[in-house]
Design a protein around this nucleic acid. Structure first.
Lengths: 193, 193
DNA sequence: AAGATACTGGAACGGTTATTCTAATTAGCC
DNA sequence: GGCTAATTAGAATAACCGTTCCAGTATCTT
């Protein structure tokens, strides 16, 4: 048996995610990746296939991490309204604190979408359903334990919150003051009272 | 005096705006522009300077048209809540009806932003202030004529609406059903009651 | 008609793009 | 040590990038 150990595939994929997230697909070159990942050009093609394939894998990793993260975060929250407040707050702070102001990889990829990229379109549509589902389940919990009035249309609210979250991730790329964005958050959360 | 007539500078700039709006800065090549605009490569450089300069002019044209459009639209609206509803509805339909699903040029440019593009950052920050100002003025009118309760914090609401509008323009790129997005709109407008 | 300028097509430039490939080196197992 | 495969550096490829340039053509004014 020959040489077995190879560079950490996941670690490198994490770095690739960082770069694509920061610069987007078109503005990231293979040379950028080779320099940033610290692996050889050939290894990149052997391991991941090519630029598009690497992007797809990086994008998938991001989405999985993201939805798992939100799910497990909600599981640790007792109060629904405070839970959403914290989620939005974290989303804001992540982007504003981040020196690169990368925002949200999904949002960035959505706006970079060009007509004809059907597979990517479907992935993003699916991502929307996943998050609206997570939001809905958490709101439902609030209705069941009496925190949120039964009169509220939580299906509409979960969809609204997803759209709002997308907007937050755009605006946080250019707004430097997190407090200003939190005022929008507190305003929209009034809908849960 | 020699030949005077030249191709319509504004018409060509409009077409350039279309293309940059659709494909973004990085994915649009000079060759794409030359083919699409129908003018010569040399004329493009003579008239507009270069790719970056042309993009800047196109982006400025879009922003001016947009803010003027919203301002004059609001002037024609008597009821504030219905006015915002129509505005959001138009924003949704524009993007969904558009075969290219271009969304919002400002949003797309925001997410394409890469650290170091300070001039562009300032332009987008300014655009935010302009729109929040337009929204605020319209909400104030509603408070003054009694349509909107004085208890409402319309500064926060104008900022929230701007963020929401950004989100709408992202989600409308992938959501095919305008009615679903209008449910979010009607939900957020509850805040004005 | 003559002169001046707008605009064209297309070549040329040096640089970068994504991808493939080769040769050399490295690291593990027998 | 010797075999084998992982990984490297970097050259080669062909296409495309943004930009400059120029000779030719079209269109205007006098």
């Amino acid at each position: 048996m020959p040489r077995v150990k190879l560079f950490d595939k996941n670690e490198v994929l994490n770095k690739a995610t960082e770069l694509f997230w920061k610069k987007g697909y078109h503005a990231t070159s293979i040379q950028d990746l080779v320099s940033f990942l610290g692996i050889n050009r050939g290894s990149l093609y052997d391991t991941y296939g090519g630029k598009k394939e690497l992007f797809d894998k990086a994008f998938q990793l991001y989405r999985t991490n993201n939805s798992n993260g939100v799910t497990s975060f909600f599981e640790r929250q007792n109060e629904v309204k405070k839970g959403f407040r914290k989620l939005f707050e974290m989303g804001i702070n992540e982007t504003i604190t981040d020196i690169d102001h990368k925002g949200c990889f999904v949002v960035n990829t959505t706006t970079e979408l060009i007509p004809g990229e059907e597979e990517m379109l479907k992935i993003i549509q699916d991502n929307k359903k996943v998050f609206e589902g997570i939001f809905y389940a958490f709101l439902l919990k609030g209705q069941q334990n009496g925190e949120i009035p039964k009169s509220k249309n939580i299906k509409n609210i979960s969809s609204l919150f997803y759209t709002f979250y997308n907007g937050l991730k755009v605006v946080a790329k250019v707004e430097t003051n997190p407090k200003k964005l939190m005022k929008s958050v507190d305003e929209i959360l009034i809908l849960l009272d």
